[in-house]
Every structure is written in structure tokens, then in C-alpha cells.
Simulated assay, not measured.
Amino acid sequence: MYIEMTDNTGKVSDDMQQDTIKLLNFAASFIHLPEHKEMAITYVLNDEIQKINQDYRGKDTPTDVVSLEYEPETISFDADFDMPEALQAELEEFDSFIGELFISIEKAQEQADNYAHSYEREMGFLAVHGFLHINGYDHMIEEEEKVMFALQEEILTAYGLTR
């Protein structure tokens, strides 16, 4: 999986970014995501994530991670349409982008302190949590929450990023 990283804070080390890429590629293989998929992560401060949270979720408060799942429009063709290979390749490439995450490094540090675990663990947790959201997992109802939270913990533990 290709992951585009942007650090709007200037405070996230190259090592942290590379560790996040490795963790999310592990998570992608864990859920059997096709290798050609792509996503983006942008590290931000609380003021920027508050604006994003307001714009996309209608909540005027900083949060830890905002996940924007990309849902391509369905394109339909007549049953007798013989799609050229070049067009098929373009459609597959168009369908490769799954979404983007915005992670507040300030909230990550605050939560790491509150939960008494490392900043690295919290950043990994937020990345996996957001990654699962852009892959269709949610926690709005209790049954979905159990599935998503168990899966994210299973991924983090299998990767070796424990509390």
C-alpha cells in the first residue's frame, strides 16, 4: 500500500512517519487489503484538526483523528460494452485511493499522558483506528464497536505495539 505522509506541524520525525507506514502496511495485510491501495496521512495541531472536525463532522472541537473515507462513484456500462484494457487500468487506478487521515499530535500526546502509555503507542493506535474507519469499520453501535476495537487491538498486539 502506498501512503502519502504530510507533516503540517514540522514535529513528527521521519522515523515516526516510517514506523507508521510499516504499521499500516502490516494492518493492510492483516485485513487482506489489495496491495495497490493508497491513502494519505496529515499530521496537524489542535487548531487545524478543530477546523477539519467542524468542516466534515459539524463538531467545533479538537479531536484526535479525523478519517475521511473515499467512496468512488459507481460507473456503469451497457452489458454489451467491451471495455478497452487501457480504460480498465485507469478505472482500477482511480479506485485505488481509499481515504485520508488527519492526526492531531497534540491530542495524541495528551491521550498518551492520560492513558499512561507511550506517545508512539498512541500515534500507532490513532493511525490504525483511522485506517480501519477508511476501510469501512465503525463503532457507532455496540456490535460494530466490539468488532472494530477487538480488531484494532489484535493488529496492534500482533505488530508488537502494546500498552
Rank of each mutant, 00 (worst) to 15 (best):
residue 68 L to Q: 12
residue 52 I to D: 01
residue 69 E to F: 08
residue 137 Y to E: 04
residue 3 I to T: 13
residue 88 Q to K: 14
residue 125 F to W: 11
residue 14 D to S: 10
residue 159 Y to V: 03
residue 105 I to N: 01
residue 155 I to E: 07
residue 47 D to R: 04
residue 75 I to N: 09
residue 88 Q to H: 09
residue 72 P to T: 04
residue 61 T to M: 05
residue 116 A to T: 06
residue 118 S to V: 10
residue 34 P to K: 05
residue 31 I to N: 04
residue 87 L to I: 15
residue 99 G to I: 01
residue 30 F to D: 11
residue 16 M to C: 09
residue 130 G to W: 03
residue 128 V to E: 03
residue 93 E to K: 06
residue 157 T to S: 13
residue 47 D to F: 01
residue 116 A to G: 00
residue 123 M to P: 04
residue 79 A to W: 07
residue 32 H to D: 10
residue 110 E to N: 09
residue 113 D to G: 05
residue 131 F to L: 05
residue 110 E to V: 01
residue 147 V to Y: 02
residue 76 S to P: 01
residue 81 F to Q: 09
residue 123 M to G: 03
residue 143 E to A: 13
residue 152 Q to S: 00
residue 140 M to I: 04
residue 135 N to E: 07
residue 90 E to M: 14
residue 3 I to P: 12
residue 126 L to E: 01
residue 91 L to I: 14
residue 154 E to M: 06
residue 123 M to Y: 09
residue 123 M to D: 04
residue 59 K to A: 07
residue 85 E to R: 07
residue 125 F to G: 05
residue 19 D to I: 01
residue 103 I to N: 02
residue 83 M to I: 09
residue 134 I to C: 07
residue 149 F to H: 13
residue 120 E to F: 01
residue 27 A to H: 10
residue 63 T to I: 08
residue 154 E to T: 14
residue 130 G to F: 07
residue 108 A to K: 08
residue 118 S to E: 10
residue 145 E to Y: 07
residue 145 E to M: 14
residue 45 L to I: 06
residue 1 M to L: 14
residue 160 G to T: 04
residue 45 L to K: 13
residue 149 F to P: 01
residue 11 K to T: 10
residue 113 D to R: 12
residue 80 D to E: 15
residue 146 K to P: 00
residue 146 K to N: 03
residue 6 T to A: 14
residue 145 E to G: 00
residue 43 Y to M: 07
residue 114 N to P: 02
residue 161 L to P: 03
residue 117 H to M: 10
residue 142 E to P: 08
residue 79 A to T: 15
residue 9 T to G: 08
residue 55 D to C: 07
residue 33 L to S: 11
residue 151 L to N: 05
residue 48 E to I: 02
residue 22 K to E: 11
residue 68 L to I: 13
